[in-house]
Design a protein around this nucleic acid. Sequence first.
DNA 1: GTAGGAGCTTGAGTCGGCTCTAGGTCAACC
DNA 2: GGTTGACCTAGAGCCGACTCAAGCTCCTAC
Lengths: 153, 153
Amino acid sequence: MAEVTAALSIGQVAERTGLSVHTLRFYEQQGIFVSAVRRASTGRRVYSQDDVDWLGVCVILRASGMPLPALRRYTELVREGAGNEEERLALLREHHGRVRDQLGRLTQCLDLITFKVGVYEDILDQEGPAAGSGRPRPSVGGDVPASRPGTSA
Amino acid sequence: MAEVTAALSIGQVAERTGLSVHTLRFYEQQGIFVSAVRRASTGRRVYSQDDVDWLGVCVILRASGMPLPALRRYTELVREGAGNEEERLALLREHHGRVRDQLGRLTQCLDLITFKVGVYEDILDQEGPAAGSGRPRPSVGGDVPASRPGTSA
DNA sequence: GTAGGAGCTTGAGTCGGCTCTAGGTCAACC
DNA sequence: GGTTGACCTAGAGCCGACTCAAGCTCCTAC
């Protein structure tokens, strides 16, 4: 058990969070740090492991589409400390809902794309190497064939 | 069996696709239509049911994050007609992969968020109404409590 | 003692994808 | 014949989230 608080440079933090140094400075300016980023006597930023942990959470929230203003608000609540758990929960729940929606929509999209991929595989199967069997496919999705469109086939 | 090809105004198409009239004109300019949009003698755009069907596909591809250039390329391939199915398939497969990745990442994010929501529910459970039991929770994710951070608890 | 590299600040630029504005045409209704 | 209201074009503007540039300061190593 050593290094209670690590003291990392912006480059090191960039490396371990996957964010660019630009983005780290940008996030700081945007108020996306729970406590002010410390500075060395030379003016350079000094990050702790806590900062890295927090950024890990931020990366996930961002990756799931939380907008910066919401992330900033959440950060503020955490910075204020205990007593505002309701608001944090509300914020997270709202985001949770959005992510679930997004997941649902994406799943639907994936279905369509999977289907279309199958259609094209069949087409290439049949006219391609040998006259393969060609799994039965419902009659949709081959995409308008340019010449005589007709609600696809 | 009537209206082989409907003849819809831009407003009607906007309504049935969920896209704005601005976006429809923008897409047209971007080459996101399989065949040139027809014009009435007055210069107004006249869309067919095929256009609407195609836009339906586009909406789904866009919703799943396909960038406009890729969508344009796909449109071009469909416009060119039969013979380029390999490239269409490649394009769709690539997108399919990206959507699956995105889905995976989003699912992970959802797990974290679900977990955090649970943590806050427990906190509010305990200090709130009555001193509820509080389901056992692993020791992560309560978020740095501002004062004495310490790798959260 | 100087070259290289990491870091600093402020402010501008980029990118994707729309979204809106200005100024105009046209058809329909009162 | 005047007013809506839907549509037209070209081009500018916007938004979110970075990303980069310019010009500077340090520190380290040769």
